[in-house]
């Protein structure tokens, strides 16, 4: 086919475009992912019984800022990575900020604890299951966000896949915070992050295949 005819064919498909469609699609995917993670958590794990009391503790909200901060940074990255030619540059650091804050908190807590209690603080009671549960809860958000990004045009599929996975993991962690009984920064700065890293790694692995266009 001659390129001129080809162009004519493309131009004839009424090219009016809804510029807000991507934003709606991402919002829907985020909402679906969060609601699904909440339902899975409530049905499979259950809200923590003392939830009505712990919401009055500052540590409960401080703990929530870690996944919320990472989710915001990952959402922002995903939005930019799914459009061609949009640069990120030094603003990758936005992702590191919540992690640095959380690790600083962990360092303070561990420094003030006695030597023998440090390991117990890090491991808590649920370190064996915490990252796996987060990874499991992230699956609906993962699928929904991949669907949203597939409607865009990511030119760096591996990095985009990782950002999508991280976003899904952070969304799942928000839901998991309503179940998790662990309150020490030493615990959640370690295992929550590890839990989010699992879907992020999966995203980096499958990105080139799933996000091809």
């Amino acid at each position: 086919m001659k390129t001129n005819d080809f162009i004519g064919m493309l131009a004839n498909q009424t090219p009016s475009v809804d510029r807000r469609a991507p934003a709606r699609r991402f919002a829907l995917a985020l909402l679906l992912g969060l609601v699904a993670a909440m339902l899975l958590m409530a049905a499979g794990l259950g809200l923590r019984p003392d939830l009505t009391q712990v919401v009055h503790l500052p540590m409960f909200w401080l703990r929530l800022t870690l996944p919320v901060g990472i989710a915001s940074a990952a959402m922002w990255l995903t939005l930019r990575l799914s459009r061609p030619g949009v640069r990120i540059g030094a603003r990758w650091a936005g992702l590191a900020a919540p992690v640095v804050v959380a690790w600083a908190g962990m360092a303070v807590v561990l420094a003030r604890a006695s030597t023998d209690s440090r390991v117990a603080l890090v491991l808590g009671h649920t370190w064996r299951v915490c990252p796996i549960l987060i990874a499991l809860l992230s699956m609906p958000a993962f699928a929904a966000m991949l669907w949203a990004v597939r409607g865009m045009a990511p030119v760096r599929p591996r990095v985009t896949g990782a950002a999508v996975g991280l976003l899904a993991g952070a969304t799942a962690t928000v839901a998991y915070c309503l179940h998790c009984p662990e309150m020490s920064p030493a615990f959640w700065s370690t295992w929550y992050l590890l839990g989010m890293t699992i879907p992020a790694t999966v995203g980096a692995l499958i990105g080139p295949r799933v996000l091809r266009w």
């Binding site: 086919m1 162009i7 475009v17 799914s82 266009w213």
Partner: peptide
Amino acid sequence: LQETLLAVHNARHTYR
């Protein structure tokens, strides 16, 4: 060229 033009066309909603 045609493939790229098609990609531009299909991805035109991703332009900011």
